[in-house]
Design a protein around this nucleic acid. Sequence first.
DNA 1: CATGAATGAGTCTTCATTCAT
DNA 2: GATGAATGAAGACTCATTCAT
Lengths: 207, 207, 207, 207
Amino acid sequence: MNKRDATETKARILSTAEKIFSEVGFDKARVDDVANEAGVNKALIYYYFKSKDEILETLFSGLVEDARRMLVKSMEKTPDVINGDNYKALFDAYIHFVMEKRKILKVAIAESVKTSSGLSVVMELGNLIINAEIDSIRKAYELKGLHFPENKKEMLVMEFFTGLMPFLCFALFKDQWESYYHMSEKELCENFYQAFKKTHLAAHLPR
Amino acid sequence: MNKRDATETKARILSTAEKIFSEVGFDKARVDDVANEAGVNKALIYYYFKSKDEILETLFSGLVEDARRMLVKSMEKTPDVINGDNYKALFDAYIHFVMEKRKILKVAIAESVKTSSGLSVVMELGNLIINAEIDSIRKAYELKGLHFPENKKEMLVMEFFTGLMPFLCFALFKDQWESYYHMSEKELCENFYQAFKKTHLAAHLPR
Amino acid sequence: MNKRDATETKARILSTAEKIFSEVGFDKARVDDVANEAGVNKALIYYYFKSKDEILETLFSGLVEDARRMLVKSMEKTPDVINGDNYKALFDAYIHFVMEKRKILKVAIAESVKTSSGLSVVMELGNLIINAEIDSIRKAYELKGLHFPENKKEMLVMEFFTGLMPFLCFALFKDQWESYYHMSEKELCENFYQAFKKTHLAAHLPR
Amino acid sequence: MNKRDATETKARILSTAEKIFSEVGFDKARVDDVANEAGVNKALIYYYFKSKDEILETLFSGLVEDARRMLVKSMEKTPDVINGDNYKALFDAYIHFVMEKRKILKVAIAESVKTSSGLSVVMELGNLIINAEIDSIRKAYELKGLHFPENKKEMLVMEFFTGLMPFLCFALFKDQWESYYHMSEKELCENFYQAFKKTHLAAHLPR
DNA sequence: CATGAATGAGTCTTCATTCAT
DNA sequence: GATGAATGAAGACTCATTCAT
């Protein structure tokens, strides 16, 4: 294989690792299996990555990067987030992100349980997202010359637990939910949107 | 250590396992460590449990049992759940349960990622709780002679993703949250209650 | 249980051990299984026997004792072993012994492989039997005033390898043989007698 | 130890395992000991073999293969087996095989005791050999225009129990016998040949 | 870049044996 | 005699990681 393939090989290792980590959990996942399923020699994995942990870190960094990019892009598109019509666009951006990244998100959630490792990725990600969210809400209020009823801490808690977490859990349980309650992806998404609109989104509209 | 106290010994093994599983994750947890920290011989663990997996299953069964008990008790106390005042009582019951069981809940969430094992405990638990919840809401409506706007599937989705999940994530991130955002438990709980009231609970009040 | 049962209990332990040892081999056999199948508490086994090894030794001693008794009895009955008619009686005595003791004989053979333990039971048993056999043959010759063509070593070798071993192997493979070649016990015994008569026994008749 | 020499390494593991299995029995044998004595890392054993059992199976397959080869070769050399002179050649082929393979044969016999595993290797081996034997005897009779007194079942029994088993037991007890009865290998072999000739072989000569 | 072979340090599980009652 | 509980010492198997080519 020529040099051009190097990037492709590394990417294949990463996506295979992501898949396997999400299926059996990081600790249960075997480097051997990643190698086999990616079709590369195990030792080659160690040529590209210092350790199994580094693979995970790489995946996590990618996730955070992608989240950042997603945020920037969707903020650009919808400067006025408290306009009812824009809600749907924002919701779609989030749901799309969460569904696409669901494999690595599952791993992130599972790993966030472990207390030892300081700040979990989910907290990092959460902090990133909820601050962006609050910022953009504030801007929207200011844009309209409205007074932004700031209670920062309550806002943070709300954005995190009733805003972000349902999405994360959507990533986590989407597949199980569909098969257990016999819902199609479309049906589930629609119901989820309705539920989210009536709860979290409703709380954001200025009275 | 009294030889007679088999039940106490078994319970000590279980609670130690619960602690360690929640700290490092089930797969990373070592039976050796459980034995040492519980102050029993490792082989004794295998006298009481067929395998490490069986310990986990026992803990999960206990969790589901406790949830069932909690539901029965709190439903008895608050027959009219859509009465604003009762909300707080119900919320408290849930938040108390979730905080007390947070160790095993963390493990349950982390394990629910693994696709292989069919239905995850969180789904089992979720199904149990959201159905009880919907039932009790319906009863409350009927009690008042109000029409219950049934859309079962949307209701399920709402109860699960915007009702239950925030609580579960509260269990998961409570400690990290407190330390990262420098909030006291009391402050976090209060903010969480406000947020939950404005979102999920608000959606339940009959208009 | 009263004291009368003690002997019975010990016997039950022994016969259960014999059964299990013969089914899975001594090393693979678990004291737990012996206890369960014998319907006694595991610790009770250690009340009667110092160790798992002692159970085996007890069984082996019993085997040697029984062999001795069988020899004495059959020698009494058939003083003239080189008389063709007596052959059958002797053969029957052996075949009966071997079939009845086949469980412990299997264990004895399997254990005789291990070099470490000095003289194996099979060698002990073999020595006992072939010497008795040679003695009785010699007596039969002398009784008839015939010259006994003594070549002790060849005689020993013959009695052991072509006389005794087929019987031992009969014990070992009887069950497998019957099921693999679809022979009834009766058919197999009869064929074995014919084969043994034409080979080993034929060599004993004075020409 | 050349890294390239995978075949040699695997062979060394196998022969070391064969040795240790035959000395202490399969169940008592420790993979650790095999690794140490073979001078390889224990994990390497599991790189080449799925389990301890697979090592044994590999050894057994090899034994059966070797037996097959030995049969073909010796049948080629001695087409007329009922010619007195050829007997010795055949006997030598067998005794040589049995002495050379005695380690794994011991294990095979010890393992054949265990009922669980269906057909034992010894039965498999026995079936192979006695059928080859009977075939070649029949051919020898036909070659001479003699009538072959076929009683297949009796023949099978005879070949197995009075033909093959003495050889197998020779493998099993050769060493113990030599040391207990103070016989040299040569002496024992010679006596065994005489005994075998007078018994089993004698029965084969056409009358 | 790529690979087959090799290794050290686990990690679960087993089991003969003993203890306290 | 009898038993449930407890233990020490292994033993099979695993797996992340490295080496030599």
